[in-house]
Each structure stands twice: as C-alpha cells, then as structure tokens.
Simulated assay, not measured.
Amino acid sequence: MKCIIKLSEAERHTLQQMSVNHRHRDIRTRAAGLLLLANGLSAPKAAGALDVSAQSIYNWCRLWKEQGLCGLLSGHGGGRPRALSEAMLATAAEVARTESKTLGQIAKRIEAVHGEPMPCALETLSVALRREGFSFKRNRFSLKKSATRKTSR
C-alpha cells in the first residue's frame, strides 16, 4: 500500500511544531512520521527511522487522510491510570487541609475512612497532594553538627 501525503505549508508547519513541542511523546512521533511520509520516504523506511512498526505508519496515514489533525491527536490513550481514586484523594486533601499531619498519618486516616489499604506508596500520595496545591516540610529531630562535635571530644 502506498502512503503518499501532500501537505500545505500551514499543515507542514503545524506538524513540525507538534513533532518538537507536543507534551506527549506518541503524538510527537506521529507528527514526525507524517512529515517523513510527506518528504517522500516510504512507510517501512519511516517506521525504521522512528523505531515503530510499518503498520503504525499506515494507520497514522489513514487517520490523517480521514480526519486530519484531529485523527492524529485522538489516539492518545493517556497512559497509566492513577493509583489513588478520586474519593481517596478528596479524603487526603480534606485531612491535610484541616489537620497538621505527616504523610504516614494521612495515609492511615485514608485507610480508616475507606476501609482498604493504600493502593500506592507515600511518595505517590505526596505527588498527588502537591498536584492539589499542598506542600510538606520534613521534620528533623537530629542534633546540629556543632552540638555533636562538642560532646564527642
């Protein structure tokens, strides 16, 4: 099957910008693949240059011809689903907002409210709460270096 794409200057510019600047790697790869096809490369050679299968190139070509830019953007699956459910995240945000607790204490409160163990690590909980606008400082209960030096002499 022959994949030949004719691009206008505006389409070429849009695909060039997408291949460099889009936030999702798979969309950047699709845009680069279409640019390679528009420059006259065959689908198998373009696939080899991008380290994808030739069938992917044919699929992108078909989507571009049928739906244009929208077809190219519609295939992004979004990646892995989040470990924390929205209900657990809401509980964590409420606990963090109302009380001064450590991440471990917030996790225990979530487990108590929802009746199931945390589906993720504390680091994941920390990232989710930071995404919600919370920040944490780690408490240190160690002595200063100067105090330990004086006592060891």
Rank of each mutant, 00 (worst) to 15 (best):
M118G: 09
T148M: 14
G75V: 04
I27K: 11
L35Y: 03
W60Y: 02
K45F: 06
W64D: 01
L69V: 07
E66A: 07
E111F: 05
V113N: 08
S85A: 09
I57F: 01
S8W: 09
I5K: 00
A92Y: 04
W60H: 10
R30Q: 04
V127C: 07
P117H: 05
R25H: 14
A49V: 06
K145F: 07
W60N: 00
L143T: 09
Y58A: 06
I110H: 12
A46K: 10
A87K: 08
Q16T: 12
Y58M: 04
C3N: 11
R109I: 07
S85T: 14
M88E: 15
S8E: 07
T29S: 14
A31F: 00
E123M: 11
T98H: 14
L15Y: 09
L50Y: 01
L89K: 11
K144G: 13
L15K: 12
R109K: 15
N139T: 13
A147S: 15
S146G: 04
L143C: 11
Q17H: 13
N139R: 15
C120W: 05
Q105S: 13
R131V: 04
L89N: 06
L125I: 06
L34Y: 05
E123A: 13
R140P: 00
K6M: 05
Q16S: 12
L143H: 14
A43Q: 02
K45W: 06
S135D: 11
W64Q: 03
R109L: 09
T148A: 09
D51L: 08
N39I: 00
C120R: 03
S126P: 00
S19P: 05
S53Y: 05
R138M: 05
Q105G: 11
A92E: 01
G104F: 01
P117S: 13
S53L: 03
L34D: 06
K150D: 11
G40L: 04
G133A: 06
K65N: 04
G77I: 01
G104N: 04
R109E: 12
L84G: 08
T14V: 13
V52P: 00
G79F: 02
R30T: 01
A107S: 12
I106P: 03
F136D: 01
G77E: 07
H22M: 08
V20S: 15
S8D: 10
K108Y: 04
G79K: 05
N59S: 09
A54E: 08
Q105M: 13
D51A: 12
A96K: 12
E9C: 15
R23V: 10
R28D: 05
S56G: 07
K108C: 03
H24M: 13
R153Y: 07
L41E: 13
M1K: 03
